[in-house]
């Protein structure tokens, strides 16, 4: 140690020391950033509150739709009429902006029930068409008044600036008239 400091080895040792100290400082700073950033992520309470929600479909009559919330997001649940289903099936999928068949967007055996997220895929407004009397747009589905996007009776984008169909949330039928979302 004592004679390592005088001649040329002194420089190497010094450089190594500086490098190690600098590296340790960088590691320390990096570690400090972890809690400062990860606190921005959803907290445990928010995550737990996003647990699956059960919904009884029995009160929703044919032609009606309701709006419920899961993880703070609105979800449309629509009990479609025969006409609406036929319209959705009749569309040539190849002509769609976001090609998806109606079968891909509903559960087999439960075709009248359509479950979609209720935020316009353009910039997140809630399209009209759920409550009775609201405009349903040109395709018997939903109409977003913010920037004029039209969704059809399968929740697919047909006209306007929105790029994608209303996404289908993860859900499953737990009984004939009961679904669990999430």
């Amino acid at each position: 140690m004592a004679h390592a400091t005088d001649t040329s080895t002194g420089t190497t040792r010094r450089d190594f020391l500086m490098l190690a100290t600098g590296a340790a400082g960088a590691v320390g700073l990096g570690a400090v950033v972890v809690p400062l950033i990860s606190q921005l992520a959803p907290d445990a309470q928010t995550v737990a509150a996003g647990a699956p929600v059960d919904l009884d479909l029995a009160p929703i009559a044919e032609g009606q739709a309701i709006k419920i919330f899961w993880r703070g997001k609105p979800i449309f649940v629509r009990h479609r009429t025969k006409k609406e289903i036929d319209e959705a099936l009749a569309v040539d999928v190849a002509t769609l902006r976001d090609p998806q068949t109606d079968q891909q967007r509903t559960k087999a055996g439960h075709e009248p029930i359509l479950v979609v997220f209720g935020n316009c895929t353009h910039l997140g407004c809630i399209p009209l068409g759920t409550a009775p009397g609201e405009p349903k747009g040109e395709y018997d589905g939903w109409f977003c008044p913010c920037h004029g996007s039209h969704y059809d009776s399968s929740g697919r984008i047909r006209k306007g600036p929105a790029p994608l169909n209303l996404p289908v949330p993860p859900y499953a039928f737990t009984a004939d008239t009961k679904i669990r979302i999430g």
């Binding site: 020391l17 500086m18 190690a20 100290t21 340790a24 400082g25 590691v27 320390g28």
Partner: peptide
């Protein structure tokens, strides 16, 4: 553990 090692490194850097 990190702070003690870092402080040790800094001590020798400071001496240098």
């Amino acid at each position: 553990a990190f702070l003690v090692i870092f402080a040790g490194l800094l001590y020798y850097t400071k001496k240098k």
